[in-house]
Design a protein around this nucleic acid. Structure first.
Lengths: 210, 210
DNA sequence: CGTACTTTTGAATCGCATCAAATCTGGTGG
DNA sequence: CCACCAGATTTGATGCGATTCAAAAGTACG
C-alpha cells in the first residue's frame, strides 16, 4: 500500500460517479491517493471510521466472514465509492479488501462531513447516491430470494445489464458468490441455459434470449 | 382508504423514527393522514412518484411479483418510512401494499424535496436514515446468501434482535418470505432448532442458545 | 516451466421446494 | 353463542436442485 502524490484525473471520475462532479474543491484537495496490492486490507471490522473510499482503478470489497469459514461479499465496487454508509458511524462493521492491485482515493470523514454540511449541491448528490445504493441493494435482495440458479442469472442480466445483455467485470467464481451460489452451481446453470438456448455467452458477454 | 383530518401525534412518531423529529413544521403541515384497508394498494410499479410514506400504525410493504406468481418482499415497514429511496425517482419501481388495515402519513415529494434543501438538520438526519437503510439491506443480503434455514434464522436473531432475543412483529409465514424460505421450511427448521436446544420459543419471542 | 487460480466435469448426498392435507386461529355474521 | 370462513400453522411424502467433495483441464503470470 503506497501513497501517490499526483493529483487524480477528476474529469474521468465524474463519468463513473456523478456525485464526484459536485464535490467541493476543498474536499478534493483533502484526498490522498493510494495503491494497494492484491489481497490488501483497507480496514477491519471494529476499526474507527476515518476515511470514505473511492475506487479509481481495480476493485474493493466489503466482506464478512461467515461462521463456517465462507466469505460473504457485502459490497463490491469498481469505479465508485465504498463504505459510504459508514460515513455516519463510529466504527466499521465489516472488513474491506482489494482482491487485485488497485488505486483508491481516501477522503477524511471529517472533511467529508464538513463538505456535506457546507455544500448544498454536493449534499443533494450524495443523497441520490445513497438512494441509488438502496435501490440496488433491494434488487439484490430480490435476486437472492429467487430459488433457482437460472432465475438469479436471468434477474442479474435484466437488472444489471442493458436490454438483456451484460458484460461481466469479474470472474465467474466471484459472480457466483454475488449470486449466492457455489461456483459449480453457476457453471452448470450457465451450461444448461446455453443448451436450452435461453442464454448465449461470448467471452464475458452474456445475452439473454426468449 | 379514507382521509383523516386530525393532526397526528408527532412526539410519538419521533420515538420510532428520529428523522421525523427534525422535520420542519412546513413539511409536517403538508402531510395528509390516511387509513387503509387490509390488502390495500398504495401505488403500483410505474406510477409517478408523488408521496413519501410514513407508516404510523399497521404495516406497509414494497413488493414485486416474481415470474412464477410468487411475491417477493422488498421492504417491510412498521413505524417508519417506506419508499424513501424513490424520493429522487420519477416513477416507482415496485408495488406498495398494506397487508393489514393501517394508518399512514403522506408527504408530497415536492414539499419533501424543498424541506431537504432548506433545512440543514433535516437533510443530515435524512442522510443517516438512508445510510442506516443501506446497512440494514447489506445485512439482509448477507443473510440471504447463507445456505441453510437454520443459519438464516440465527443470523436474523443476531442482527435484528437484541442480545440473542428477538420478538417477532409479523406472522411466521411472512417471516419465511423475508428469510427467502417457504413457510414449511421455516416451520421445520424452527422445530429442529428447538429439538436441538439451540432455540427456545415462547409465543413471538425467539431466544438463541449456545 | 512451475505455481496459483479459475474453469469445468463427475458422483453422492442433503436440504429445501413442492404438493397435499389436517388442524388451529381469529374474526364475521346469523 | 355458534357456525363459518380465511388465513396461519403444522405434518407428511416426494423429487429436484444445490451443496459438497473430488479431481482434471485450462489459463495467467512470474
Amino acid at each position: 500500500m503506497s501513497k501517490d502524490k499526483r493529483p487524480p484525473d477528476w474529469s474521468a471520475l465524474v463519468g463513473m460517479q456523478p456525485s464526484v462532479g459536485l464535490m467541493p474543491t476543498s474536499l478534493r484537495e483533502a484526498a490522498t491517493r493510494i495503491r494497494t496490492d492484491s489481497h490488501a486490507t483497507l480496514f477491519r471490522s471494529g476499526d474507527p471510521v476515518c476515511h470514505v473510499y473511492l475506487v479509481i482503478d481495480g476493485e474493493a470489497r466489503l466482506i464478512r466472514l461467515a461462521r463456517h469459514g465462507g466469505e460473504v461479499i457485502l459490497q463490491r465496487s469498481r469505479g465508485g465509492f465504498i463504505a459510504e454508509a459508514s460515513l455516519d458511524s463510529k466504527a466499521y462493521h465489516c472488513d474491506a479488501v482489494t482482491p487485485e492491485p488497485s488505486t483508491l482515493l481516501l477522503f477524511p470523514v471529517v472533511a467529508f462531513r464538513t463538505a456535506l454540511e457546507d455544500d448544498r449541491a454536493f449534499c443533494k448528490a450524495w443523497q441520490s447516491q445513497l438512494a441509488k445504493e438502496v435501490r440496488k441493494l433491494r434488487a439484490q435482495c430480490e435476486r437472492l430470494s429467487l430459488h433457482s440458479a437460472a432465475d438469479r442469472i436471468t434477474h442479474y442480466i435484466e437488472s444489471e445489464g442493458d436490454d438483456g445483455v451484460v458484460t461481466l467485470r469479474q470472474s465467474r467464481k466471484s459472480w457466483a458468490a454475488e449470486l449466492g451460489l457455489t461456483h459449480e452451481a453457476l457453471y452448470r446453470a450457465l451450461r444448461r441455459m446455453q443448451d436450452d438456448g435461453t442464454l448465449s455467452i461470448e467471452g464475458t458477454r452474456f445475452t439473454r434470449k426468449a
